[in-house]
Design a protein around this nucleic acid. Sequence first.
DNA 1: ATGGTGGCAGAGCCA
Length: 255
Amino acid sequence: MKIASWNVNSLNVRMPHLVQWLRDAQPDIVALQETKLDDERFPDSQLAELGYRSVFCGQKTYNGVAVLSRLPFTGECVTAIPGFEDPQKRVLAATVGDVRIVDLYVVNGEAVGSAKFEYKLRWFEAVREWLRAELAAHPNLVVLGDFNIAPDDRDVHDPKRWREKILCSTPERDALRSLQALGLHDSFRLFNEDGGHYSWWDYRLAAFQRGWGLRIDLVLVSDALKARTTAAGIDLVPRGWERPSDHTPVWVQID
DNA sequence: ATGGTGGCAGAGCCA
């Protein structure tokens, strides 16, 4: 089973890219972030024609998440962090077969020390406590999405320039480590220990062409799924297409 | 030190 994550930065704009990529990459499950669409406008019938069922939790202009699957969804769908008041649509949990999928669009945080940064850390802590319960109920857990955190300096094109900046700061990395301590493994690092592999490049300054990226899109797998994970990677091709998202898809193969 | 690009919406916010 191939499971992928992609921040599309507006599904309205990126629907042709998504359709092309579904054909090319043949994922079984895809988690999307930044759909920026009200639920009434989600293109579920068009995706159904391509063989994908969808669940979604959106809002216009900002945020919005969705999960697409070739196999039927089963069990409960969750569209908010339990007990955490938040008007922003950033989380979606769904079950496919024996695998629980949690799609996250983590708060960006703007700048270290800002009000949005504090919100990011509070939000992330609430997610961790939610996932503690999800993991207890669903040992086969995949937590994937736009984490807006580069796990360590190997995931940053220029660590000096990004030192203690947003997406790379110690409090953010500590929060991610605390989440992973529940028993969630960065699937990419099961197969590749090198630096220089990125999933996001700023639109400004031709960052993609210059290789100025960060690896902030992650697929975390639980202990039980780690044993079944056979490959993981980053698909750079869609980032090179005309009018791309600033993120490119990341994926994992689970047997 | 700042700005640069893109999406949404129709000016500024968010990333």
